[in-house]
Amino acid sequence: MSNLSAFNGYQPTWCPGCGDWSIGIAIKTALAQMGFTPSDLIVVFGIGCSGNMNDFLNAYAVHGLHGRGLANAIGAKIANHKLPVVVVAGDGDTYGEGGNHFLHACRGNHDITVIIHDNSVYGLTTGQVSPTAHQGAKSKSTPYGLPEQPVRPLHIALTQGASFVAQAFAGKVPQMIELIKQAINHRGFSVVNILQPCVTFNKLQTYQYYLQRTFDLDENHNKTDLKSVLSFVQKAYEEERFPLGVLYQVEKPVYTDFLQVLKDSTLVDKEKDTKTVAKELLKEFL
């Protein structure tokens, strides 16, 4: 256990009662319990209320563009695959603007942890629907109701190749801390979808709503059988219930395992004689 307060940046500006508070504390606690200091990892933040954690959580950090955090994280991991890389992003970041990156990050099994604040609204732009909002949801951008069904993040992560898929609830901090730790410890692409009420803009998915509809996974839950996990997740979706815990976890090669040049050293630590290499390559053109 390292010093938790070392991670403290500025005093957060989140609304009183916002789920971001507990998620922020859970992340710091998890990192401290794992023995990390702010110099030991790279954290990439998205844009939104969740992304604003950039100023509240100390680390070597990127606060990039909306939706692009995963893409930055993948590049950073390739450059220095010995450093843990964590992405802190929202549901708009991950399932909307950056949906394509999420799909391909799962598929690449990059050794990155992504913590998604899933509150079904765009809080920072004052409450429009997010990709996980319910069909029919009324908001400033959908005054007559949202025509689309919600994105199903767990389904996507599971079917596209993520090797660790978990779900947490911002109202259950101790479990959230454990799940974040397991996700960071997992070698491979680890997804933690955190259900989070937005007390200001989301009057539907409240703490009460989630308290009634979330449930812990059974001790006997088989987290390595993709087929059964998928049907389990689908059943929960149909019943509008939300399982909490590690839904799926398998070991498989990560993206950088396939990169031969990373076998002996990280890219950032390589010593090279580029002139000799260039002269050798020039021979191909003679």
Binding site: I42, V44, A71, G75, A76, A79
Partner: peptide, 13 residues
């Protein structure tokens, strides 16, 4: 978009 953001992540690192 991923192309340049991958590269920016690597450059940052």
């Amino acid at each position: 978009i991923a192309v340049i953001n991958n590269a920016l992540g690597a450059s940052f690192a």
